[in-house]
Structures are given as C-alpha cells and as structure tokens.
Design a protein around this nucleic acid. Structure first.
Ligand code: TTP
Ligand code: MG
Length: 666
DNA sequence: GGGGAGTAGAATT
DNA sequence: TTCCAAATTCTACTCCCC
C-alpha cells in the first residue's frame, strides 16, 4: 500500500527505519542525524529485533491505509456533519479553558548521568551513558553530541561514540537525589505531583501570590534551590496547564526555563506551530498515523482537520486531539493515586529449555514477592509476560479468589500460565501482580474457593484491614520509587501531609485507542494474533484446568517438599511436611502431589495462627523495619486517597484528556 | 447492557 | 564476538455472565 517510497528506499534504506531516537531531543542539536540514523540502521539490520520492528511497522502502515480509505469514502454530507461536530466540541473545549493557574514542570537534566557524575567527578566532560551494552537509560550531554541517547542499545551507542563510558544504573542513588529535589518542591507546592524520579509538576499559583512574584521568578528560585540542595541542574517550564508546562520545560532544556504567559493569544500562537510529537501522549505511532493518514504535523492542524479527527477517532481520542490543538490541558490537582500494579521482568539469552525457563520464572517470582513484601502488597491478578525469541510479546493472566504475595503462591500460578505456553523459545519473562489489596471490605469474592490465606493476607479476619492496607500503600512511589528508600530515612517518606501525587505519565495518556470506533483494525489485530499465536485462546479456564506444575520440571517439586514458613510475614510455628508428607503441626498426611490441597492446608494453619494473634495487626509487612520506613507516608496517603476514588475515578480518566468533566459518558 | 476478565498495544521515564 | 531494558499506566476491544 504505502509504496512510492521505493525509490528512496533503495537509495537510503536507513531513512525508512523509524526509531524512537528520531524524535528530536535536547542536546541533539549539532548531531549529524543522517549519519546516526545510518549507523543505527546498519547495526540493526537483519536482527530479530529489526525484523520484529518491521512487522510492527507494516501493521501500522496497513492500519493507516485503512484509515485513508475511510477518509476517501466520506461523502460531502459526512464531512460537513463531522465538521459541525468538531466545531461544537472545539467551542465547548474553548469555553472550559482555564488560564487562572500557574503550573510549573521541573525536569532534571540527564538525571541518572548527572547523579553519576556527582559521585564520580572524573566523569565530567566525558561522554558517558548510564546503562549496559544492551541498553542505556540515559546519556550525558557530551555523549548526546554523538547521537547517543536514552533507550538506545549500548553496542550501537558505542559505535556512535567509541570512547563512550558506561556506568551501571544505581537506583538507590537516583532515589536519594530525587528525594532531595522533592523536599525543595514541597516548599513551593505541598501538593506537587511527582511524575517520575526526575520530574514534577507544581501548582505555583499560590506561592506566586504569596510572594508577589511571577512564575518566571519562582522557577528561577526553585531551580537555584534544587541546585543548591543537590548540585544538579534542572529545567523548568511555566504555563497555564500541565500539558503546556511539560512542553515548555523541554524548550531550553539543559539548565534553562521557558515561560508561556497565561494569555490565550500567547498559548494559541505557541501551540499552533508545535509538532504534535512534542505533546506528551503522542508518541511514535500516533505521530505516524496522524501524519500519514490525515496529514497532520502540527498542533494547529488538529483543529484544521477537526472533521476528520471526529470522523475517524473515538470521542475521547478526538477530544484529546482537539484539545491539543487548542493548547488545553489539565489544571487541577488530582487525587493521590495508589499504585495499581507491581512487576518484575528479566531479559536473558533466548532459550527454549523448559528447565531453564522455569528457573527464570522462579527467580522472577522470588524477586516480585520480595518487592511486594517490602511494600506490604498482595494482589489478586497475576500476569505472565513473555517475549519470544522473535521479540513478540504475549501476556497471560489469571485472577484468583484470594490475594497472594508469597513467592510460592506466585510461582504456583505463574507456572500454570507458563506451562500452557510451552514449548516456546523466550528471551524475557515477567510477572505482574495487580488488583492489589482491594478486597479490604472483606467481601469474599467466591466463598467456594477462597482459602484461608485470603483472610490472612488481606486481613479480613481482623477487621482492621482497611487501615492497614492503606497504611501500606505506596505513597510517593512512582515507577522506580519502590526501589525503596530503605536508608533514605525521613524525607518524603515521613512527610505525612505531603501527598505529592504521583502522576505518572497520565498527564496525557490516552493514545492507544487509535483504534477508532468502527474501524476494522481490530479484526486485523485479532487475525494477526490468531495466526501468530494459535494458542492464544488458552485462557484462564483452560489454564486452571491444568494440573499444577510437576511436569514443568524439577523445580516444581522441590518447591513443594521444603519446609515453609507458616506465613511469609510472621514466623510462628514452622510448618512443613515431615518426611515429605506429614504436616508438622497436626500430623495430617498428604502426598506431595496434592499441591492444591497442601496449599489449603497450609493456609488453614496460617489462619489459625493468625486468629490466635490479636487480629489487629497487619500481615502484609513481613519486615517491621520496612514498616517503619513506610509508615508515615503511607498513613498519610491512605487517608486521603481511597476516599475520593469513587467508582468513577476507577474508570481511569486520563488526566489531560478529561479536563472537561461534563458531557462525558463516564 | 453493565461489568469483569483477559489480551494487545501505546506511551512515558 | 555478541548485541535492543524495566516498570507502570491507560485504553480499546472482545468474550462471557447476569
Ligand atoms: C527516556 C528514559 C529515561 N530513563 C531514566 C534515565 C533518565 O535519566 C531519567 C529521566 O528521563 P528523562 O528526563 O527523559 O531524561 P534525562 O533526565 O536523562 O535527560 P533530559 O531530561 O536532560 O533530556 O529516566 C530510562 O530509564 N529510560 C528511558 O527510556
Ligand atoms: Mg530529565
């Protein structure tokens, strides 16, 4: 379909290999883009990764063709109809424009790299990247001059810059410095939203008023303060809403700031020529689609092509696009959001060896469980993520009747999921737990199958559950935050009233549903999936029907026979199968094969113990120390959080997408 | 028709 | 010589059940 590029294809094949690095980023000014592109292409060409990228690309192109065809089919009547729809929407959006707030977005410069340079000054001035030969997380500005940048594999970066120095990631350090910056932010907006370790949004409307200063002045002050406290530089953007502030912080990127006045003309002028890709939430694919299907490159074209946008995309997507064209964004300070999932994944050299795969799974389960217990979390839905040797992604999930958090439980269910996929050659295995601690109200989902662990873990039995789990949540934990600030002590952790909301990237997240309403992409997608993955219809039912592991390999069995602490959290009596079949507590005999039964039995004793205890304690925190660490933050957050999150909130309304709360079908 | 579960895919850092 | 991360969130959709 998308031909016509054949000529250029043969001439410069690298030009058609679209990577994420093509998106202009700070520090890439004097870079010979063409050369970088060529090298990246040369290094990638022919690899499994590359081939998978090509498949994805082809799929997108087909999608685009379909959209173009639909556009072509629109009658004059259709178009005028959608034109009216668009105009109406635009008017409504415009009417809701709010220029009364001053938002400031702060983004640390080359964060990880800057931190590493602080702790090892000899790195200063030399091209350096944080990461490994297979992937780098970020690069300092010296390295960027060579075209080296985040999300680029290290071996390619080395090609671009042979003297590039690699430094391994050290999250503890980044978390430590991140907290220092947050202490500063807190002084200017106690409700600031941490978007990641190195980014935050501050509503500085009040401070500006109090101090009688402008946004520009406050930005300078904050940046100076951050530098003073950390020795790190950052950039800031000031604008009437978060979406714009974020765009602005990138403009004078290394150690600079940009202020967009809170007046409509300034905003409209600013936004109109802005490439859509600059907007948070519009990534490589969306950019591609909008450009090739509708000829949209700049934000103002979103308005000009309003009728097509309304004709092709779902209401919510269309609305987001139109609002982008108007330069609108969220101006409110949302509720604190609790973490919704926790996961762990590892890449390894591809293998189809079932024993090896099982080992990996075991390790992941172990690590995930550890992370969960550190945070005092339990989850009901377990998702297995796989990446095949061909880089194709798959995910398989089960939702259980009870919440789990021990590596044993996790592994038990994960094994079933994995087993159903065998044989398979993989390069990545991941596990994610979601539906975290949410049965707090003690309403069992399915009395039939619920095991006693349910009570233990969730605390149903104690009645204090609700408090507990709130207290354990997550507060200021953004993505990487949970690398836990053990030694971090105070700082945020302890600041109860902080409630720095952690937005993530929700500031715009909306994207994906480029799968418009009536479009046929879906069928395409479905077909594709079936073709590529015949076993994809193996769902929970089937999986649950499968007998546990056992056959999966040795691992399955050794797991069973071992002694097992009655509870991962608190070690009361030692529970184990004496001689491999006899319960150490009550003497009941049960053969190793009875995996489920044994589990139930163990759960029973667990609960028994639990009840003996005062029922007011929480189980989720295995480690008292951790608890102390998290306590303050948790408590604070817990209290406000849940409160507001009415079922409505549960609908995941993208922040910047729904600043217009009315007329939504939500 | 609403709601939950499951799967894929896009985006962000 | 090899060689493309990890964590989190959200949306769209499709089944399926009530
Ligand atoms: C973009 C990106 C960032 N990160 C990490 C490393 C970054 O230092 C940190 C912050 O991301 P960014 O703010 O996107 O990048 P940066 O701070 O390194 O550089 P700058 O803002 O000056 O352009 O997040 C990843 O691990 N993977 C990624 O793909
Ligand atoms: Mg940054």
């Amino acid at each position: 379909m998308a031909k016509s590029e054949t000529s250029s294809d043969t001439a410069r094949p690298w030009q058609s290999y679209h990577t994420v690095y093509t998106n202009a980023k700070a520090g890439m000014d004097g870079v010979d883009k063409e050369k970088v592109q060529r090298i990246v292409y040369e290094m990638s060409k022919g690899s499994k990764y590359f081939e998978n990228e090509e498949r994805k690309e082809a799929f997108i192109r087909q999608k685009i063709e379909t959209m173009r065809a639909r556009c072509a089919k629109l009658t004059a009547t259709d178009i005028s109809h959608f034109q009216m729809v668009a105009e109406k929407r635009i008017l409504e959006l415009e009417a809701a424009r709010n220029l009364s707030r001053i938002w400031l977005h702060v983004d640390m410069d080359a964060f990880y790299a800057a931190v590493e340079t602080l702790s090892n000054p000899s790195l200063a001035g030399k091209p350096m990247a944080v990461g490994t030969m297979s992937m780098i997380s970020t690069a300092n500005y010296e390295a960027r001059k060579f075209g080296v940048r985040a999300a680029m594999p290290g071996f390619i970066a080395r090609k671009l810059c042979p003297e590039l120095i690699f430094v391994p990631t050290d999250f503890k350090k980044y978390t430590y410095y991140s907290d220092l910056t947050r202490k500063v932010f807190q002084k200017y907006d106690p409700n600031f939203m941490a978007a990641s370790l190195d980014e935050a949004y501050l509503d500085v409307t009040e401070v500006c008023k109090e101090k009688g200063v402008t946004g520009e002045e406050i930005a300078k002050e904050i940046r100076a303060s951050v530098f003073e406290e950390t020795g790190l530089t950052c950039s800031a953007g000031v604008a009437a809403n978060r979406l714009l502030a974020k765009v602005c912080s990138d403009i004078n990127k290394p150690n600079g700031q940009f202020v967009l006045p809170n007046n409509r003309m300034a905003v409209v002028t600013f936004i109109s020529s802005l490439p859509i890709r600059k907007i948070g939430g519009i990534g490589k694919v969306t950019e591609h689609i909008l450009r090739d299907a509708l000829g949209i490159n700049t934000c103002e074209e979103m308005l000009q092509k309003g009728s097509y946008i309304c004709a092709l995309f779902s209401q919510s997507t269309a609305e987001f696009f139109l609002s982008v064209g108007l330069g609108l964004g969220r101006t409110d300070t949302p509720e604190v959001r609790l973490r919704k999932s926790i996961s762990n994944e590892r890449t390894f050299s591809a293998t189809g060896d079932e024993t090896l795969l099982y080992r990996k799974l075991e390790e992941i389960a172990e690590m995930l469980s550890t992370d969960m217990q550190k945070e005092g979390l339990c989850g009901r839905t377990l998702t297995l993520k796989l990446k095949t040797a061909a880089f194709e992604l798959r995910s398989r999930a089960v939702t259980l009747q009870k919440h789990i958090c021990t590596s044993k439980d996790i592994l038990k269910h994960a094994s079933k999921l994995l087993k159903a996929e065998l044989p398979i050659s993989l390069r990545l295995i991941g596990l994610r737990m979601s539906h975290l601690n949410e049965e707090r109200d003690g309403v069992p989902l399915d009395p039939t199958q619920k095991t006693l662990t349910h009570f233990m873990v969730s605390g149903d039995a104690s009645g204090k559950d609700v408090d507990e789990q709130r207290s354990f949540g997550h507060e200021a934990h953004d993505i990487s935050d949970y690398f836990v600030n053990k030694e971090k002590s105070d700082s945020f952790t302890g600041s109860h009233e902080t409630r720095h909301t952690h937005i993530d990237h929700l500031d715009s997240n909306h994207s994906s549903e480029l799968n418009d309403d009536n479009c046929t992409f879906d069928s395409n997608a479905a077909e594709m999936e079936t073709v590529h993955n015949p076993s994809s219809d193996v769902t929970a039912d089937k999986v649950q029907g499968t007998s546990c592991l056992n056959t999966v390999t040795n691992g399955a069995n050794f797991l069973e026979g071992e002694a097992e602490a009655v509870s991962s959290s608190r070690q009361r009596e030692l529970f184990l199968w004496v001689n491999g079949y006899k319960c150490s507590i009550c003497g009941t005999e049960m053969p190793p094969d009875f995996v489920e039964e044994r589990q139930e039995h163990c759960d029973f004793h667990l609960a028994e113990n639990l009840q003996k205890e005062e029922s007011g304690t929480e189980f989720r925190s295995s480690n008292p120390r951790q608890r102390v660490v998290c306590k303050a933050q948790i408590v604070s957050q817990s209290q406000r959080k849940k409160r507001k999150s009415s079922p409505k909130e549960g609908r995941h309304i993208p922040i910047d997408l729904f600043f217009v709360k009315s007329n939504q079908n939500f």
